[in-house]
Simulated assay, not measured.
Amino acid sequence: MSRLKADIRKTMSNLVVAPSRLSAFSLIGDTMSSPRTHITVNELNDEIVPRLDLVEKLINTTLASLIETTESDEERTRREDQKRRFELMLLSIRMNVASVSRRHAAVIRATQDDDRTGGSLLQLDENEAIALDNARLLYDQVKAHARQ
């Protein structure tokens, strides 16, 4: 399992996605100085998950289109590799979102049942904190490059 985590971290830190309308960007991976150790239920449900869904659709659609329309075998291979690395990074983020959701299911359920406010804090372990920071970073980068 630690080998898988190392591969995921390496992939996340080296991921470069360059869809035509998004320009080029790379993820910082786990090199951020201080990932947040808490997140609110509202941040998880109303920001992280929907934004992750949006980014996934946008990048997958863009990369699929680029793979399908490119005439260069070298470019197609490069885009397919980008797509695989992006999918691996998303898998890591989604696994960590699921981990947070499982560990804090009672608090999340109570929030959804209106028994608590959505401001309830959820404790994140190190991997969850890194993954959620990467999700935020990915969204911010896509948003910034989409404006260009």
Rank of each mutant, 00 (worst) to 15 (best):
R79F: 15
K83W: 10
T70R: 12
R109H: 09
S72K: 10
A105C: 09
R79K: 15
S72V: 01
L91V: 09
D73T: 03
T62K: 13
E80I: 03
S72P: 04
L66Q: 15
H104S: 02
T77R: 14
R85W: 03
S72C: 09
S72G: 09
H104Y: 02
E80G: 02
Q112P: 03
T61S: 14
L90Y: 06
T61E: 13
R76H: 13
Q112C: 03
S65L: 12
T111G: 04
E68Y: 14
V97D: 06
H104M: 03
R102M: 00
R102C: 04
R79E: 07
R84Q: 14
M89W: 03
S101P: 02
K83C: 08
R76P: 01
S65T: 15
S72W: 10
V107H: 03
T77S: 14
V97Q: 07
S65N: 15
T62H: 14
E68Q: 14
S65A: 12
H104A: 03
R102N: 01
T111H: 06
A110I: 03
S65E: 14
Q112G: 04
T77H: 12
E71C: 01
K83Y: 14
D73C: 04
E87R: 10
M95T: 07
A106F: 06
I67A: 06
F86I: 04
H104W: 01
A106Q: 11
L90R: 05
L90V: 06
D81Y: 12
I93W: 06
T111L: 01
T62A: 14
A64M: 07
R109I: 10
L88E: 05
S72R: 10
R102P: 00
S101T: 13
M89I: 05
Q82R: 08
R109W: 05
L91G: 13
D73H: 08
A106I: 14
A110T: 07
S99D: 06
R79C: 06
L88G: 02
E75V: 12
A64P: 02
R79Y: 15
S99P: 01
T111F: 08
V97K: 02
V107Q: 02
A105K: 12
L66N: 12
L66G: 13
R79N: 07
I108T: 00
T61N: 15
F86T: 04
R79V: 09
A98W: 03
Q112L: 11
S99Q: 02
A64I: 01
T62R: 13
T61R: 12
R94A: 00
R76G: 09
E68I: 05
R109L: 11
S99G: 02
S65H: 15
E87P: 02
E71N: 15
M95R: 07
L66E: 15
D73I: 02
I93D: 04
L63E: 04
S101K: 00
I93C: 06
T70H: 13
K83G: 04
A105G: 07
E87I: 05
S92L: 07
A110H: 05
R103I: 03
V107C: 00
I67V: 13
R84S: 12
A98S: 11
N96D: 09
E68H: 15
I93R: 07
D81E: 15
R109Q: 12
R94P: 04
S101M: 04
V107R: 00
V97L: 00
T70L: 09
E75M: 13
D81A: 15
R94C: 00
I108Q: 05
L63R: 06
E68V: 02
E68P: 02
S92R: 04
R109P: 01
T70W: 13
S101A: 08
Q112H: 08
A64T: 10
D81M: 14
L63I: 07
